[in-house]
Amino acid sequence: MSFALYLAIMMTGDQIELVQESFAHVLPAAAGAAHTFYDRLFTLAPETRALFRGDIDDQGRKLFLTLAAVVDALDQLEKVVPVARALAIRHVGYGVEERHYSIVGVALIETLRGALGVRFNPETEAAWTSAYAILSGVMMSAANETASVKHVVAA
């Protein structure tokens, strides 16, 4: 079974719909949500602040553009997986470590909870948790492969 097919099985159609519908409610306030996300991330892991060298507003726009692309294609993971892998490989160069993925997940869920209020019910949270598990799993796999290759080449 291909990795993408395995991942597709992890989310139901209802979960994909919940993620897509809830994200549509967050998008109009994406700039504020991005600020909340980075505030939360830097509170949870202050050392991650040094990983962001550019304008944080620009970074927030990039974050939400990436999230929008992923959310839109959750039912077509064969499109998401290569993008997520490429993103992870770039993030290795920025200094992102595997442990950062879980912290980002917490910051994302907390941001969504705040942005969606009562719309962020247990089913929506479970759907987002599954979606992030898929995305971060793909990214960590690609990052680990990249780190392994760099380690072999350096040796």
Rank of each mutant, 00 (worst) to 15 (best):
M1K: 13
A4K: 10
A4S: 14
L5C: 07
L5M: 14
Y6N: 12
A8L: 12
A8P: 07
I9N: 03
T12I: 13
Q15H: 14
Q15C: 09
I16F: 04
S22A: 09
F23I: 11
A29L: 15
A31M: 02
G32F: 01
G32I: 04
A33Q: 12
F37N: 02
F37Q: 07
F37C: 06
Y38S: 01
F42Q: 08
T43Y: 14
A45Y: 11
R49Q: 12
R49T: 12
R49C: 03
R49N: 02
L51H: 02
F52W: 06
R53F: 09
R53K: 15
G54C: 02
I56K: 04
I56G: 00
D57A: 15
R61C: 01
K62M: 05
F64T: 00
T66D: 04
V71S: 04
V71W: 05
V71K: 01
D72G: 13
A73F: 02
L74P: 04
Q76S: 10
K79F: 09
K79G: 05
K79Y: 11
P82W: 11
V83D: 01
A84F: 08
R85P: 00
L87C: 04
L87Y: 01
A88Q: 12
I89E: 07
I89G: 00
H91R: 06
V92G: 00
V92F: 06
G93V: 02
G93D: 10
Y94C: 06
Y94L: 10
Y94D: 08
G95P: 01
V96Q: 06
E97L: 11
E98Q: 10
H100D: 13
H100L: 10
Y101D: 07
S102F: 08
S102L: 12
V104Q: 01
V104R: 00
V104H: 08
G105F: 07
G105P: 10
V106Q: 13
L108Q: 09
I109N: 01
E110T: 06
L112W: 14
A115G: 06
G117E: 12
V118P: 14
F120P: 03
N121M: 07
P122Y: 09
E123T: 13
E123F: 12
E123R: 14
A127L: 10
W128F: 10
W128M: 10
T129K: 04
Y132H: 08
L135E: 03
G137I: 05
M140N: 03
S141V: 05
E145V: 08
V149W: 02
K150G: 00
K150A: 11
V153D: 00
V153W: 03
V153G: 01
A155I: 08
